[in-house]
Design a protein around this nucleic acid. Structure first.
Lengths: 212, 212
DNA sequence: GTTAGGGATCTACAGCGTATATATCTACAC
DNA sequence: GTGTAGATATATACGCTGTAGATCCCTAAC
């Protein structure tokens, strides 16, 4: 039964979303499905395989961009979709950093990015590099945001500055209140994407801009 | 004894480098130091704290850039230092994604980046954002490289293309041999950094270029 | 009717993090 | 010296983990 496998993945994803990756144990997943832990092994060769399946499951949820949009719209849509995915499944997305994009779903996403870059006029020998650069940033940003790297821990910037002598952190001191200003991660993400889009335009060069 | 703590961190780092994060168990670390597992608890409140210490330990190895270099040189030096760190301690560096930069060492690195961006002429309200963008990319690239995201799994690009109908992957098909070309991750990293440097110059605007 | 074979189960094992209680050693006060 | 407080290490134990091995059941094909 192939739907048994799906049932297992659904249970695992639910557990991950509720209690983090640590909550995804073979026993817990099995109990949620209503079987014993060993009953999972006919469907997944082990826990690693189950986590791989989880990644695939999450990736399959990625919406494909409207092929009629401009390359900017398509890239932006994919980037925002990844970020939303990270917010929806914060504990699963970090796994993407340790697993190559081998599932059909993942390869299709890569292809869509290739296509957008080609449409932008990026030379063939730069497409793969820029795709990795873009996806690395988008994934890194999303994971940083939900994983806590961007958070300030228990102390705000002012306390952090206080724990070292001011002379040791001249730039922090010089920036002063800019570091305490309220901030929207969404707006920052948009600004970063705008910058990267600019970079793509530069890589495309003065050649043929939109229609080629 | 403070050197006991250091001894523990050294043992933990050695285990992580030799056998990955999974090899870092309280019992294994303790055995390597020559004590029992519970003897670690006066020095670290638990495994989480030990891993935090491990991150700090690794971060402390980051060389500080020569303050007399240009801002480009300083940024490049820091970026390459992070990448080398990831190659030296591949299993520890991914932890940086889930922990804010709170140790004095980490804050000093952030300050050095702030300073380089200020020296480049980046406006104050953009410095923090660009620092996060840069560090996100550098960290993401390094982690992707050592974590396997960039690897091709067991199949090369050609095999990967083969597993989906050609009509499904038009851009892969169009790019063809460019995807099979030999590649140096170091060279790609340099190219990406050059692009990002260009972005910083744009953010600095036509204002006062090097000396302000 | 018999015979695979896949799915599920039960049991068991080694290892994990750590709570608890106990022992040992050092340093200082009297 | 003697007593004591505090830090360090130990021994034991509990509940959890992933999974190997043997067993059972139920379905489908010959």
């Amino acid at each position: 039964m192939a739907d048994r496998r799906q049932e297992i993945l659904d249970a695992a994803l639910a557990l991950a979303d509720e209690g983090g990756l640590d909550a995804v144990s073979m026993r817990a997943v099995a109990q949620r499905v209503g079987v014993t832990a060993m009953a999972l092994y006919p469907h997944f060769s082990g826990k690693e395989a189950l986590l791989d399946g989880l990644v695939g499951q999450v990736l399959a949820d990625l919406p494909r961009p409207d092929p009629d949009g401009s390359w900017q719209e398509r890239l932006s849509a994919m980037a925002h979709a990844v970020r939303e995915l990270a917010h929806r499944h914060p504990s699963v997305v970090p796994l993407l950093f340790s697993r190559p994009a081998v599932t059909p779903d993942a390869v299709r996403v890569v292809d869509a990015i290739y296509q957008a870059l080609l449409d932008a006029g990026v030379p063939s020998d730069q497409v793969a590099r820029l795709e990795r650069m873009l996806s690395t940033f988008v994934l890194g940003y999303a994971v940083s945001e939900v994983g806590g790297r961007f958070s300030r821990g228990t102390l705000g910037p002012r306390e952090r500055r206080g724990q070292l002598p001011g002379t040791e952190l001249p730039a922090h001191h010089q920036l002063g209140s800019w570091l305490d200003a309220p901030w929207s991660w969404e707006a920052e993400f948009d600004a970063d994407l705008a910058d990267l889009t600019q970079l793509i335009r530069l890589a495309a060069g003065p050649g043929q801009p939109p229609g080629a």
